[in-house]
Design a protein around this nucleic acid. Structure first.
Lengths: 253, 253
DNA sequence: CTTAATTGTAGCTAATGCAGCTACATAAGT
DNA sequence: ACTTATGTAGCTGCATTAGCTACAATTAAG
């Protein structure tokens, strides 16, 4: 293949490419005329309405309307003159705005997927009464943990009595176990522990997938395995841990 | 802030989130009813048309139409029954298809940006006649090179006579200089050189941004600084070099 | 200064798509 | 046999857009 042949740019394939591009842009809320006008401005870097109309193959007066709309949608800017000259907004900026919004939407769809998957309006949070039941559920969560298990509780002694071996097993399979509890209390085997006074509740987060909040004496708890809620609490707990880490750092200095 | 408060999921904020999500989905070509129906199916994992209508707040019969359209657009699938059950297509698949298409479109917009930026139909390729002019332009390209300079020519002796010092300077500023020429010819200073018989033209690519093709005796050339064309030729040249590398590898074995 | 050309806005028509609804046929349940 | 649930078809009204004409204002040319 001779390189001279490659250099002969095929105007028809450029037109086909042009059409493909403008039809994709219609997907992000631009009308056909707007899409065409925008591609015209992109390939020319700057253009008057008359030039846009010519390149995009649309009536001159329609070009004005399309360009006006593109300005409102922040795809182009313009400099007043006779004629007014239109410029594309930097592509990176448009891409980030348009695609960023979509990425975020898909992330949120992932988060809410299955939120209402049970018949009828499910309980997003299940209430468990009685210390035995609460401790039992806590043990299940610990056994189910795969990556990270966080517990913040003033009642760590009872938890250790009941589930000390589970903590060890979790550690053994590589779970990152983080315990926050009151000073002067013995903690079970864990990756890291923190001491914090005046804990008012027992909070447990397992893998960012399930969460529990219990009364200080473990007599009652709310439990959820909804990923949306659990992830939310997980983020909250990470902030708490960051603060504890920072406090430790200051104590070191 | 008490974690119990966080757990109280605000149904109204869920509804607000629902609306936000469906309005963003309208950006990828879904109508309002289609967007709402889709979000309903996502949060429920599977649903009948009646359930979709209820969740999405639309008339039952409109739900059927919206769902039919979503199937055509490959956002949902269904299993026949009484009632028919609708399922979301995996979100990753939709995301890749929709966002991938947009990413590609934006990449192409980047590629064609400014393609027609000169007044009127610009020459994508400039013709330069006469060996002196061709050699002069070649020297300019060499001096302008920043990252990679590729030249394939049977006339390397003339190029070396004229621009030997420029090759040295380019090397000095870190440019990757690659020379392809005929056997038994002395080459200027370069990063890598290859020997290839029967070269029919002189090809030069500078940083993937500008390109030149000249007659074997350098009497005439086509030159382009259009990034779209230059990148195209750059890719072509890389294939040539890969083949040369592979041939050397075979010769070594 | 007058005329012509260019630029830009306003508004109209027709076509299309969509929201929202009614009507009705068919299948399944009672 | 009757009732309920499910699904399809089609209608109306509204909004939007493509495509056009008309015209005013500005600038250029004579």
């Amino acid at each position: 293949m001779n390189l001279f042949d490659v250099l002969k740019l095929d105007i028809e394939s450029l037109e086909s490419e042009y059409r493909k591009l403008s039809s994709v842009l219609e997907k992000i809320g631009l009308s056909e005329y707007e899409s065409r006008a925008f591609v015209a401005i992109i390939v020319k870097n700057q253009a008057s309405a008359d030039e846009v109309a010519e390149l995009a193959g649309m009536p001159r007066t329609s070009a004005y309307k399309a360009l006006q709309s593109l300005m409102e949608k922040q795809f182009v800017t313009s400099v007043q003159g006779r004629p007014t000259i239109f410029y594309p907004v930097p592509l990176e900026q448009i891409r980030n705005r348009e695609l960023g919004g979509l990425e975020e939407a898909f992330n949120k769809l992932e988060a809410v997927k299955g939120l209402l998957s049970e018949k009828g309006m499910p309980q997003l949070v299940y209430t468990i009464s009685g210390k035995r039941g609460v401790l039992s559920k806590l043990g299940e969560m610990l056994d189910a943990s795969k990556t990270r298990f966080i517990i913040s509780t003033p009642a760590i002694q009872e938890v250790r009595s009941e589930h000390g071996h589970r903590f060890k097993e979790a550690m053994g399979r590589g779970v990152e176990v983080i315990i926050i509890t009151e000073p002067m209390l013995k903690v079970p085997q864990c990756t890291r522990s923190y001491r914090k006074k005046d804990l008012l509740a027992t909070d447990v987060i397992c893998d960012g997938q399930s969460a529990m909040i219990a009364a200080p004496d473990l007599s009652l708890c709310g439990f959820s395995d909804n990923p949306f809620i659990s992830a939310h609490l997980d983020n909250f707990m990470r902030m708490v841990i960051e603060r504890l880490d920072a406090a430790q750092e200051r104590a070191r200095v």
